[in-house]
Write a protein that binds this DNA or RNA. Sequence first.
DNA 1: GAGCACTGC
Length: 653
Amino acid sequence: MNQNESLITSNSFSNLSIKRIRELLPIARFRRELLYLIENHQVTVVIGSTGCGKSTQLTQYLYESGWAESGKCIACTEPRKVVVKSLAQRVAEEMGCTLGEECGYGMSFESCTSKTTKVKYITDGLLLQEMFIDPLLTQYSVIMLDEVHERTIATDLLLCLLKKILKQRSDLRIIVASATLDAEKLEEYFKVDQLSCTTFHLESRLFPVDVFYLSTPTENYLENAIEVCSSINKTAPADDDILVFLSGRAEIDECVKRLETASLRNIGSAPQMVALPLYSGLTLDEQMRVFQKVEQGSRKVVFATNIAEASISVEGITYVIDCGYEKVRVYNPYNRSTALVKTSISQASADQRAGRAGRTKPGKCFRLYTEAAFSALKAKSSPELTHSDLIQPLLFLKAMGIKNIVNLSFLDNPPTVQFMAALEELYFLGALDEMGHLTRPLGYSMAEFPLHPRLSKTLLTAAKFGCVQEVLNICSILTITTNLFIKRSSAEYFNSFYKFAVEEGDLLTQLNAFHAYLKQKRESRWCSNHCLNAQSLLQAEQVQQRLQQYLRKFGVYATSRKPTDKTNILKCFLASHYSYVAKRQRNGSYKTPEGLNVYIDKDSVLHEQTPTWIMYYEAETIGEKTYAKVVSVIEGAWLRDYYDEKKNTTGAA
DNA sequence: GAGCACTGC
């Protein structure tokens, strides 16, 4: 895995000094001008594509010209951890310091900073979290938001809150760095609030990429993809690798198979093609295969999802083939379900994909759609905030003292119905009162937990039910995954699954597996033998330790009654998942209070059971049907008890 | 009664 600008490694320029390499970057010529603009404007928008040096150089320019004096620090945010770490390593090297001294980084579970740190790379999410301790972010003199075009929820929230902070801190400078984004929109966003803002365009140092389109639309782009691969293979030198963007796992597996067949037929006449899949569902080791060298005279063909668009950059790609589609997770606020929807990509995204071909020399991009179809694509992808569950972002904003959320200005405002759904649920959870004000201490504590508010509420009520340790463990699991088991063959899966299965359902089954893992002291062979995902289990354990620290901070101690009553654990979850219940219908489906029909997910221990009432953690729509995941059996009587209690407490108000 | 984009606190 490699990051954009760490592409310039000291190895490839070993005969040049670091100082000289820095001077050769396109951004170097504009050093004085950029510093002048930043000095004289509160916000500077810097537009420049991958490789222009903005992420590694701007921070150093600021440091060298004294912005980190008087105890302040220069921050640069990134949406992903790998990038935070590799940038910090690179810059520490350029600055000639040990990582963690003058240049350091911060991310969850792994921070590397000290009192002397002046340049700090940090995940956008962690910078938000720092606002609980220091709401005005006073330790920073300059904050650079990088990769703003990706429009992650955290970056959008930072834009929103930094605008407020700037009004109180005239000494603070913001740099908004983006590859593609209309600068006018950003300038307007800040200028509406009377903040001084300017834009600077940087040239890129990428190589040109020729783009080709289909002359007529295709019925089956998988077929086209294989054809294009074969025709490239006939003419191009064997070490020109191919990267194919597809929408998902099924398409990728299909193409890998087809290319292997096609390549076998080719023997003797053209280079052997080695098909490699790349998507996040693969284990880390499987993903790493795309970085291995293939045999001399063979050609690498990587079939990838969006993961190759920003997260993982495969080096040595000369040809990109782009199907024009991606899968997006879309939240439905009307019934609180999510769906994975296959949609056309944006023009910005198509260009980003094409750019993957021009990293080391001129490249070519074959788009498996017509030029007219490209023109019809929307210019930008829709920001994450506009199609996501807003419960957590909204609670965070409330905790930051934003009273009237609806009047808040985002770069793109989410639909009102999403706000209403989130407000309603936060009220139900007790994080907000009737007036929509944050409750204290409950609402504030819930916000501070690095968990979905539904889980933080469950955890904060667990003491009442005498099951803190169990709920803590379940929340840790759910933060990482909805299923700790790996599906190899279904026989193996179910064999292992049923060793841990309990009749109460998936929450307690997953908990059983986690407890067994903790007893085994992280034995990875044991995990594998039991079809358990070792990676997820380890991450869940880390989360558990972190959550434990938060609990201590709030004075909740992880004690449990012994033996713990399973019923209490489920009742504790029910108290915060009241809208996530469903009753069995005659046709075998289940109906939620909101009228949504759900079916029990195939991965569930309850898949072939028929309890009258179920509670679930999330609902996922696939095609025409919606499936309840992480399902537990509950009793109708619990719901009545719960409803009566709720009526007594809120009815008095 | 089916199929699983990608991050992050």
